[in-house]
Amino acid sequence: MGDDVKTRGQSKVETSDRIVRAAEVEFAERGFEGAGMKAISQRADVSQALLHYHFGNKDHLYSEVVRRRSKLINTERQALLEQVDLTASDAVERILDALFRPPLGPAGGDQSYTRIFGGLIVGRERDRALVKEFYDPTAQEFIRALQGALPDISQKTAAHAYTLALGTLVVMISRDGRVERLMGQREMRDTEEILQGLITFAKAGIMALATQED
């Protein structure tokens, strides 16, 4: 009865959104195995029955968390990538900006999703399947863009470059305190400074790979 009263004035979409936001935090803090449907229902302030009504089981809820967040990230990535002139001298930098900026900004969520994002890249079979479904199509667009900006590199090299650049991003957004500790400072630098460091480093690596083409 209590949940009926609380959600009476809310649409199914609003309730669903609240559950997904709560689940994102729970999965980030405890991982998939440690997260519990009861804990998620408590965070979302809904009954477990309502939670199961909306999402069925934990696998489906986890998939929905990744699907919704990846859509926000990839929509912004694609919009930025479409603005890149692949014939311009700064094309590689702008491609990398389009890759890195969304996960570091509002589309990437807060610290919660950064932990999930990092886990997806090195995750188990469940995570690999979600990456394939929700991230690979956009990844292919970036690989083609790199080939357009650097016409002499192969798809293999462009894919290698993309993967290494993404790995660098994951380290920077992990927010586990190690980067700050190694840098000898207490707080992460501002987003623009982080972006410029990522872009400079990744571009240098991409150009070095390009020179190794057979």
Rank of each mutant, 00 (worst) to 15 (best):
99 L>H: 11
100 F>G: 02
100 F>E: 05
101 R>D: 01
103 P>F: 13
105 G>Q: 11
106 P>K: 15
107 A>N: 11
107 A>I: 11
109 G>F: 14
109 G>A: 05
110 D>E: 06
111 Q>G: 13
113 Y>R: 07
113 Y>M: 03
114 T>S: 09
115 R>Q: 12
115 R>M: 14
116 I>P: 11
117 F>E: 08
117 F>C: 02
117 F>D: 07
117 F>P: 00
118 G>N: 03
118 G>Y: 00
118 G>S: 06
119 G>S: 10
120 L>D: 00
120 L>C: 02
121 I>D: 03
123 G>Y: 01
123 G>P: 03
123 G>W: 06
124 R>F: 07
125 E>A: 12
125 E>V: 07
125 E>L: 05
125 E>S: 14
129 A>D: 06
129 A>Q: 13
130 L>Y: 05
131 V>E: 01
131 V>W: 06
133 E>G: 05
133 E>S: 10
134 F>P: 00
134 F>H: 15
135 Y>P: 00
135 Y>C: 09
136 D>W: 15
136 D>S: 15
136 D>G: 05
136 D>T: 15
137 P>V: 07
137 P>E: 08
138 T>L: 03
139 A>W: 05
141 E>G: 00
142 F>Y: 06
142 F>R: 04
142 F>P: 04
142 F>E: 02
143 I>E: 03
143 I>N: 00
144 R>W: 08
144 R>Q: 11
144 R>K: 13
145 A>V: 08
145 A>I: 08
145 A>S: 12
145 A>Y: 08
146 L>I: 08
146 L>S: 03
146 L>Q: 07
147 Q>G: 13
148 G>F: 04
149 A>E: 02
149 A>H: 04
151 P>G: 06
152 D>R: 14
152 D>C: 03
153 I>L: 15
154 S>V: 14
154 S>W: 10
154 S>Y: 04
154 S>F: 09
155 Q>F: 15
155 Q>D: 15
156 K>P: 02
157 T>E: 11
159 A>P: 07
160 H>V: 04
160 H>W: 08
160 H>D: 09
161 A>G: 11
161 A>S: 12
161 A>H: 03
163 T>P: 00
163 T>K: 11
167 G>L: 03
167 G>R: 01
169 L>F: 01
170 V>S: 07
170 V>D: 04
171 V>L: 10
171 V>W: 00
172 M>Q: 10
172 M>D: 10
172 M>H: 07
172 M>L: 04
173 I>F: 00
173 I>R: 06
174 S>L: 10
175 R>K: 07
176 D>Q: 05
177 G>C: 09
177 G>I: 06
177 G>H: 09
177 G>E: 08
178 R>F: 09
180 E>P: 00
180 E>D: 10
181 R>Y: 11
181 R>L: 11
184 G>P: 05
184 G>Y: 11
185 Q>S: 06
186 R>C: 03
186 R>P: 02
187 E>F: 11
187 E>T: 10
188 M>G: 04
189 R>N: 07
190 D>S: 13
190 D>N: 14
